[in-house]
Design a protein around this nucleic acid. Structure first.
Lengths: 242, 242
DNA sequence: CCCTATTTGTGCGTATGTATC
DNA sequence: AGATACATACGCACAAATAGG
C-alpha cells in the first residue's frame, strides 16, 4: 500500500481507488473473492469509512467490484464468453466453461401480440402470446434477463414446464419440440434502467447488451422471440464465421 | 402542442421533453431533420431558453436527438443494421442500404505488439505492428471508430494505401491481399469515454458496442486484428445463423 | 479568405419551490 | 418551526462553432 498524499490535488478516495485497482489488476485480490470489510480497509488506509466507501463506489461504477449488502464486496470476474450460433444452449455452454448455470422464471402471463412480436412469430396482430420473464445466472450471479414470447395458443404450457424443469430446452422438449435453432440475432447496447438494475443486481446506467433473437423449429417455423438484456461486464458475445 | 401544467408535480422541462418526443414518434419531426431553433421552441412553449435546453438535453441523453453547436439540433435516425458475416464489407453493406459510407484515417503509427495483438496475429511479443485509427461514417455521421492492428513487417504500406483510397478493402488489394474474411467477432458493451465522445461526436457515457474481430486471408492466416467502438444508437449488429 | 448572421454552449445572478435534517 | 441544501425556472450576456455570401 502506497502512502496517501493529502493535499496533493488528488482526492483521498481517488488515491485509494487507484490503489485498490492496482491490487486487483495484479491479482492480490483474486477475481470472485471478497475484499476485506470496509471497516478493515478504512483502518488500513487510516481514513473514515465514508471516504473508503467513496473509493469502492468508484470501482463499482467501473464494474471492477460488486458490493452486496450484508455480504461483502466482491471482485468481479472476467466477462463470460457466450457464443452466438445456431445451436448454442445456455446451460451447455456454461457447464462447458466449468461454471454453474441457473434460470429462474420471474413472471408468466398471456398478452396480446405487439406488432414486433406478431411479425417475428408470424401470428395475427394481438393474437394471444405467452410472455415469460426469466433471469439467467452463472454461479449464482445474474448475467442476463429475457423477455420471451411464444405462440400462446400452441405452447401455453411452456411456462409451467419451465418452472418445473428450470431449463428452457427441457421445457420445449416437454412441449413436444425436440429440436430448435437460432435463426437470427440482433445486437445493440443501452444503459441499464431501473428494471435492468433490479433483475441483474447491477447499478443503473451500467452498459447492457440488448439482444433480440428468433428461435425456429426443425422446419424453420418461428417458435420463440426473445429480447435479452445482458450485463455487459459479465458477458460477452462470440460470433464465429468460418 | 399541449398546454404546460405548471405546479402539477411534473417539471416543465419534462413536459416539454415528452411533448417533443411524441412529435418525433409521430413523425411530425422527421428522422434526420433539424428541429426549430432553441429560441423559437422556447418562444412557442413560452419558457426560458434554459428550460427548453434542459428538455433537449433529456432527449439527447436518450439518443433521440443530437445537438450540434452552430448548426442545430437534429432528430437521430433509426439504428443502421450491420451484418456480422464472413465476408461483410462496410462499404458494400452501407451502399446496399442506399446510404453513403465514408472512412477517414485519423492516425497511423508503428508500435510494439501487445500480448493480445501478438496472440491474435501470431506474432512475436513486441514485434512491429502497424496501428491505424479510423473513423467510419454513414451519410457523414460517424458510426464507429476502430483501432486496427496488422503485421508491420509485411503490411507497413497499408496506411498509405488506405489514406489514398479511403477504403480498407481497396487498401488490402493494393497490398496484394485480394481476399480476406472475418474469422471471429467478440461483442461487448461499455460507456463512451472522452475519446469515444470525440471520435463519434457523441456525449460521454452513452452506450457503445465494443467489437473485437480478426480478419484472416484466404489460407486462414491472421491479417488484421481490430477493436471497434460503435455508437450503439446508430448501429446494431445482425447475426444470421442459418 | 474574410466577414457576418445564425445557432448552440456557457456563465453568472436571482427567485422560488421542495425535500431533509 | 427553522435552517439548509438542492433542483427548477427565468433573465441577460457572451463565447464558440457553423453556414453562406
Amino acid at each position: 500500500m502506497t502512502m496517501l498524499a493529502r493535499g496533493s490535488g488528488v482526492t483521498i478516495w481517488r488515491q485509494i481507488a487507484e490503489d485498490l485497482e492496482a491490487d486487483i489488476a495484479q491479482g492480490r485480490f483474486a477475481p470472485g473473492s471478497r475484499l476485506p470489510t470496509e471497516a478493515e480497509l478504512a483502518g488500513r488506509f487510516g481514513v473514515n469509512r465514508h471516504t473508503l466507501r467513496r473509493a469502492i463506489e468508484a470501482l463499482a461504477e467501473r464494474g471492477l467490484v460488486r458490493a452486496v449488502q450484508g455480504s461483502g464486496t466482491f471482485v468481479e470476474t472476467a466477462p463470460l464468453a457466450y457464443p452466438v450460433g445456431p445451436r448454442t444452449r445456455f446451460s451447455e455452454t456454461i457447464i462447458g466453461q466449468a461454471r454453474e448455470p441457473g434460470g429462474v422464471l420471474v413472471e408468466a402471463r398471456t398478452i396480446g401480440a405487439t406488432a414486433d412480436v406478431a411479425d417475428a412469430l408470424k401470428l395475427a396482430p394481438s393474437a394471444p402470446v405467452l410472455n415469460l420473464v426469466t433471469v439467467l445466472t452463472v454461479d449464482g450471479v445474474p448475467v442476463s434477463w429475457g423477455d420471451i414470447h411464444v405462440d400462446g395458443a400452441r405452447y401455453g404450457e411452456l411456462g409451467t414446464h419451465y418452472r418445473a424443469l428450470g431449463s428452457l430446452t427441457a421445457a420445449w422438449t416437454a412441449c413436444g419440440v425436440t429440436d430448435y435453432r437460432r435463426a437470427w440475432t440482433r445486437i445493440g447496447a443501452g444503459l441499464a434502467d431501473g428494471r435492468d438494475a433490479a433483475m441483474l443486481q447491477r447499478a443503473e446506467r451500467r452498459p447492457v447488451l440488448i439482444v433480440d433473437s428468433l428461435n425456429v423449429d426443425a422446419e424453420g417455423a418461428p417458435l420463440q422471440w426473445t429480447r435479452s438484456h445482458m450485463a455487459a461486464d459479465r458477458m460477452r458475445l462470440i460470433v464465429s464465421t468460418d
